[in-house]
Design a protein around this nucleic acid. Structure first.
Lengths: 148, 148
DNA sequence: AGCAAGTCTACTCATTTGGTAGGCTATTGT
DNA sequence: ACAATAGCCTACCAAATGAGTAGACTTGCT
């Protein structure tokens, strides 16, 4: 499960993608729009800045904005920054690998299964970007008369 | 990430798969073999019994054993029993669904992405069973002479 | 100068995780 | 019958994590 922090991060990023090219956006605006506790959001945005996803401007007219084009930041990257490993066990993680103490990977059926899960997951998360978060009409309204 | 509880559960199940047909296995044997704290393992096995994966026998000659054939219990099932939802957000969970409060699924890019992840993950976890946990030689030794 | 932003440090509180302790109950061998 | 065996059950506990909050500080703009 995603933490709330990561969930908020993605919501905030969604907002920033939608406002991309509109200049810096206030923390307070995002907090209000997305109903995220302001001070908590501060932490999150700061963390996203420190890891290179966002940039900010202080003073009047300041705020947060995406450092790069939306399509240049992978979902997987944000994920790892906020929640850490994507894999289900350290012994199958690419970025946070740690050897199992009690089991030999060579003979561990669970390891195999979780590697498959990891690869399937990464195949998605590494190939989607912030651009994919933005609002899009998935159910185009078909301007039909209601029956009867 | 899996909890330790789930990890222990899978280790214990692996042992029980390997001893399938050998009759009941003592908790203490599993605990020792897999280096799992005994009392913690008790809880775990009991939970697996109460949810229908394992069965047990008391008294001398007793112990735990698989209730069904290894190939009849899906990995996904065990997963859900111990750690709960497999999906990354409640709003994309099949078994633990809960609506998002702040976002409209119809217009949420994140939702789409996480549905994909869920499907890819389940495709694996629902199609692997306890039988896949068991020890198998993945790197067959090629009886070659060491060079020189 | 003075205001408007973000930045930083440090707390707090609730929940979950990862256990432990100890007695109770059912089964079985003698 | 009864002791030994082995799982069952209730309760507790400590550390870590998650989810925030408070408040002072810095920087940039006008």
């Amino acid at each position: 499960m995603l933490t709330k922090k990561a969930y908020y991060a993605f919501q905030a990023l969604t907002h920033l993608v939608e406002k991309y090219n509109d200049g810096p956006v206030l923390i307070s605006e995002i907090a209000e729009q997305k109903k995220i506790p302001l001070k908590f959001l501060e932490n999150i945005l700061l963390q996203l800045k420190n890891t290179g996803v966002l940039d900010s401007k202080k003073g009047k007219g300041g705020g947060y904005f995406l450092k790069n084009k939306p399509s240049d930041t992978r979902i997987a990257t944000v994920f790892r920054m906020i929640d850490g490993p994507i894999a289900m066990l350290p012994c199958v993680s690419l970025y946070f690998y740690q050897r199992c103490e009690n089991c030999n990977e060579k003979f561990c059926g669970l390891h195999d299964i979780l590697v498959e899960v990891r690869d399937a997951t990464l195949n998605i998360l590494e190939n989607r970007t912030l651009a994919d978060l933005a609002l899009k009409d998935k159910n185009p309204v078909l301007h039909l008369k209601p029956y009867s």
